[in-house]
Amino acid sequence: MTLERAGEPAQPNIADAGPMEVRAKIQLAMNDLRRLSDIVAIAIARRDGLIIAHDLPRDVDPKRTAAMTAAIVGTSEMAARELGHGKFLQAIVDSEFGKMLSTGAGEEALLVTLVRPEANMGLVLLGVERAAHRIATILAGE
Protein backbone atom coordinates (compact mmCIF):
# COMPACT_ATOMS: atom_id res chain seq x y z
CA MET A 1 0.00 0.00 0.00
CA THR A 2 1.36 3.39 -0.91
CA LEU A 3 0.86 6.58 1.01
CA GLU A 4 1.08 9.28 -1.59
CA ARG A 5 2.81 12.27 -0.08
CA ALA A 6 2.99 15.34 -2.27
CA GLY A 7 6.34 14.46 -3.70
CA GLU A 8 7.05 11.23 -1.87
CA PRO A 9 10.12 12.42 0.05
CA ALA A 10 12.58 9.75 0.99
CA GLN A 11 12.63 9.70 4.74
CA PRO A 12 9.80 10.62 7.01
CA ASN A 13 11.01 12.33 10.16
CA ILE A 14 9.79 13.70 13.46
CA ALA A 15 8.33 16.73 11.70
CA ASP A 16 5.57 14.49 10.55
CA ALA A 17 4.78 13.14 14.00
CA GLY A 18 1.39 14.85 14.05
CA PRO A 19 0.55 14.48 10.37
CA MET A 20 1.99 10.97 10.17
CA GLU A 21 -0.32 9.90 12.91
CA VAL A 22 -3.20 11.09 10.74
CA ARG A 23 -1.77 9.13 7.85
CA ALA A 24 -1.33 6.04 9.98
CA LYS A 25 -4.96 6.24 11.04
CA ILE A 26 -6.06 6.62 7.43
CA GLN A 27 -3.96 3.61 6.56
CA LEU A 28 -5.70 1.59 9.27
CA ALA A 29 -9.13 2.63 8.04
CA MET A 30 -8.12 1.56 4.53
CA ASN A 31 -6.77 -1.76 5.77
CA ASP A 32 -10.01 -2.49 7.59
CA LEU A 33 -12.15 -1.74 4.54
CA ARG A 34 -9.81 -3.78 2.38
CA ARG A 35 -10.78 -6.91 4.33
CA LEU A 36 -13.99 -7.11 2.34
CA SER A 37 -13.08 -9.59 -0.37
CA ASP A 38 -15.21 -7.88 -3.02
CA ILE A 39 -13.09 -4.73 -2.80
CA VAL A 40 -10.20 -4.60 -5.27
CA ALA A 41 -8.57 -1.29 -4.43
CA ILE A 42 -9.09 1.91 -2.45
CA ALA A 43 -8.05 5.51 -2.97
CA ILE A 44 -8.63 8.58 -0.86
CA ALA A 45 -8.60 11.83 -2.76
CA ARG A 46 -9.31 15.43 -2.06
CA ARG A 47 -12.41 16.93 -3.60
CA ASP A 48 -10.15 19.23 -5.62
CA GLY A 49 -8.45 16.27 -7.27
CA LEU A 50 -5.27 15.64 -5.24
CA ILE A 51 -4.49 12.12 -4.06
CA ILE A 52 -4.14 11.53 -0.30
CA ALA A 53 -3.54 7.77 -0.08
CA HIS A 54 -4.20 4.73 -2.24
CA ASP A 55 -3.51 1.09 -2.94
CA LEU A 56 -4.42 1.23 -6.62
CA PRO A 57 -2.92 -1.35 -8.99
CA ARG A 58 0.46 -0.46 -10.50
CA ASP A 59 -0.91 0.26 -13.96
CA VAL A 60 -3.42 2.82 -12.68
CA ASP A 61 -2.17 6.39 -12.35
CA PRO A 62 -3.29 7.60 -8.90
CA LYS A 63 -3.02 11.31 -9.74
CA ARG A 64 -5.17 10.98 -12.84
CA THR A 65 -7.67 8.81 -10.97
CA ALA A 66 -7.95 11.45 -8.26
CA ALA A 67 -8.58 14.20 -10.81
CA MET A 68 -11.24 12.15 -12.60
CA THR A 69 -12.96 11.22 -9.36
CA ALA A 70 -13.10 14.87 -8.38
CA ALA A 71 -14.72 15.71 -11.70
CA ILE A 72 -17.20 12.83 -11.44
CA VAL A 73 -18.22 13.84 -7.93
CA GLY A 74 -18.35 17.54 -8.75
CA THR A 75 -20.55 16.82 -11.74
CA SER A 76 -22.74 14.40 -9.81
CA GLU A 77 -23.21 16.91 -7.00
CA MET A 78 -24.33 19.52 -9.52
CA ALA A 79 -26.77 17.05 -11.09
CA ALA A 80 -28.19 16.13 -7.67
CA ARG A 81 -28.68 19.78 -6.83
CA GLU A 82 -30.19 20.53 -10.24
CA LEU A 83 -32.68 17.69 -9.84
CA GLY A 84 -33.58 18.67 -6.32
CA HIS A 85 -32.26 15.42 -4.93
CA GLY A 86 -30.60 17.00 -1.89
CA LYS A 87 -27.15 16.27 -0.56
CA PHE A 88 -24.76 14.19 -2.68
CA LEU A 89 -23.84 10.87 -1.09
CA GLN A 90 -22.15 8.67 -3.64
CA ALA A 91 -21.45 8.19 -7.33
CA ILE A 92 -21.27 4.72 -8.79
CA VAL A 93 -19.61 4.12 -12.14
CA ASP A 94 -20.76 0.71 -13.29
CA SER A 95 -18.64 -0.85 -16.01
CA GLU A 96 -18.05 -4.20 -17.69
CA PHE A 97 -15.21 -5.32 -15.44
CA GLY A 98 -16.04 -3.57 -12.19
CA LYS A 99 -17.64 -0.76 -10.31
CA MET A 100 -16.12 2.43 -8.96
CA LEU A 101 -17.75 4.00 -5.91
CA SER A 102 -16.92 7.60 -5.08
CA THR A 103 -18.21 8.43 -1.64
CA GLY A 104 -18.02 11.73 0.21
CA ALA A 105 -15.79 11.47 3.30
CA GLY A 106 -16.37 14.78 5.01
CA GLU A 107 -16.17 18.25 3.48
CA GLU A 108 -12.72 17.84 1.93
CA ALA A 109 -12.19 14.22 0.99
CA LEU A 110 -13.54 11.39 -1.14
CA LEU A 111 -13.30 7.66 -0.64
CA VAL A 112 -12.89 5.82 -3.93
CA THR A 113 -13.56 2.09 -3.87
CA LEU A 114 -13.03 -0.30 -6.76
CA VAL A 115 -15.33 -3.30 -6.54
CA ARG A 116 -15.57 -6.63 -8.38
CA PRO A 117 -18.44 -6.77 -10.90
CA GLU A 118 -20.19 -9.66 -9.14
CA ALA A 119 -19.85 -8.12 -5.68
CA ASN A 120 -22.41 -8.32 -2.89
CA MET A 121 -23.21 -4.60 -3.00
CA GLY A 122 -25.18 -4.53 0.23
CA LEU A 123 -22.16 -5.59 2.21
CA VAL A 124 -19.79 -3.35 0.26
CA LEU A 125 -21.97 -0.27 0.70
CA LEU A 126 -22.21 -0.85 4.42
CA GLY A 127 -18.43 -1.13 4.76
CA VAL A 128 -17.80 1.86 2.52
CA GLU A 129 -20.23 4.04 4.44
CA ARG A 130 -18.58 3.14 7.73
CA ALA A 131 -15.07 3.74 6.34
CA ALA A 132 -16.07 7.08 4.79
CA HIS A 133 -17.39 8.24 8.13
CA ARG A 134 -14.22 7.12 9.89
CA ILE A 135 -11.97 8.88 7.38
CA ALA A 136 -14.01 12.08 7.66
CA THR A 137 -13.53 12.00 11.43
CA ILE A 138 -9.77 11.41 11.14
CA LEU A 139 -9.28 14.28 8.68
CA ALA A 140 -11.49 16.64 10.69
CA GLY A 141 -9.34 16.06 13.78
CA GLU A 142 -6.11 16.62 11.83
Binding site: R5, A6, G7, V22, I26, R46, L50, I52, A109, E142
Partner: peptide
Amino acid sequence: MRTGVLQH
Protein backbone atom coordinates in the same frame (compact mmCIF):
# COMPACT_ATOMS: atom_id res chain seq x y z
CA MET B 1 -0.01 19.05 5.88
CA ARG B 2 -3.47 19.88 4.64
CA THR B 3 -6.25 17.32 4.31
CA GLY B 4 -3.86 14.41 4.40
CA VAL B 5 -1.53 15.80 1.72
CA LEU B 6 1.99 16.60 2.90
CA GLN B 7 3.83 19.36 1.07
CA HIS B 8 7.39 20.59 1.38
